[in-house]
């Protein structure tokens, strides 16, 4: 059974069809990319997959369960991690606190009573887990820095680390390279690869940066005008003339 399964999703806004019968699957541990021109419906599909939008037709299953009526925190508990194109970091908190909060949320701690008997302070184990993720992401030196003073690239990594600490089965990333420069983009690609390799997390990546996409993903979906144009192993898909004409243009 695929980890995430979307079956013939259709969505229209008013009279405009944004998605027409789109299928998409993600197997456990797989690294899948989703690309397409602007206005092709990537964001719409992404939001349908997350259950933020309700498709007019078709359904989305994650680990066999329908996501559409589930609030976001419940989806997270089920093992669906995500990052945001527009940052959603916890301003004012340090990187370490981001990781700690995510860790505690996963272990379902958060009772008032626990705080009152003094269990609120971070334990050595919790610190160790935060530091391990910090190391994986190359954020070790920045753990005690308030997130507001990080560069965009680092802040995106913090969001990623926060999601990783909830031990998701699937990570959904919305244009993680947006606004990053070359160095930062390549670093992001490296981190994503190691997250997938070391933690066995499946990743679904929506991205414009074809260099990054071809570097990290093993399978690719191409969306155009609300329909799935192509899917298959990344190199073949990117080399396909139809895809090149529709999306890539003259850039290889």
């Amino acid at each position: 059974m695929p980890l995430l399964a979307a079956e013939s999703i259709s969505k229209h806004f008013g009279g405009i069809a944004a998605l027409v019968g789109v299928d998409l699957n993600v197997e456990p541990g797989e690294f899948v990319g989703l690309v397409g021109p602007n206005g092709a419906g990537k964001t719409t599909l992404f939001n349908c997959l997350l259950g933020i939008l309700k498709p007019n037709r078709g359904r989305v299953f994650f680990r066999g369960r329908d996501l559409s009526r589930m609030p976001m925190h419940a989806r997270a508990r089920l093992g669906l991690g995500r990052t945001f194109q527009r940052l959603e970091v916890f301003s004012g908190m340090t990187v370490r606190d981001h990781f700690l909060v995510a860790d505690r949320s996963r272990r379902k701690k958060g009772g008032l009573f626990g705080d009152l008997v003094g269990q609120g302070t971070p334990t050595r184990r919790e610190d160790a887990r935060a530091e391990a993720v910090g190391e994986l992401l190359g954020l070790t030196e920045l753990l005690d820095v308030p997130v507001d003073s990080l560069s965009l690239g680092h802040a995106r990594l913090v969001e990623l680390g926060r999601a990783v600490l909830t031990e998701p089965k699937l990570l959904m990333l919305d244009e993680p390279s947006s606004g990053l420069d070359r160095v930062e983009t390549m670093e992001m690609a490296r981190v994503l690869q190691s997250v997938q390799a070391e933690r066995g997390t499946a990743i679904l990546l929506v991205e414009h940066d074809l260099e990054m996409v071809s570097l990290v993903t093993s399978r690719l979906y191409v969306l155009e005008f609300g329909e799935m144009l192509a899917t298959g192993p990344t190199p073949q898909v990117l080399a396909h003339p139809v895809v090149r004409r529709a999306y890539v243009g003259d850039v290889a």
């Binding site: 976001m72 916890f90 995510a102 505690r104 949320s105 269990q119 609120g120 909830t166």
Partner: peptide
Amino acid sequence: RGTTGRFLDAIRGSETGAASIGI
């Protein structure tokens, strides 16, 4: 200092972000 306080900090920082990690 405890978990509740940190969760509230997180929600203030970004409610969407907090929900995305299961809070």
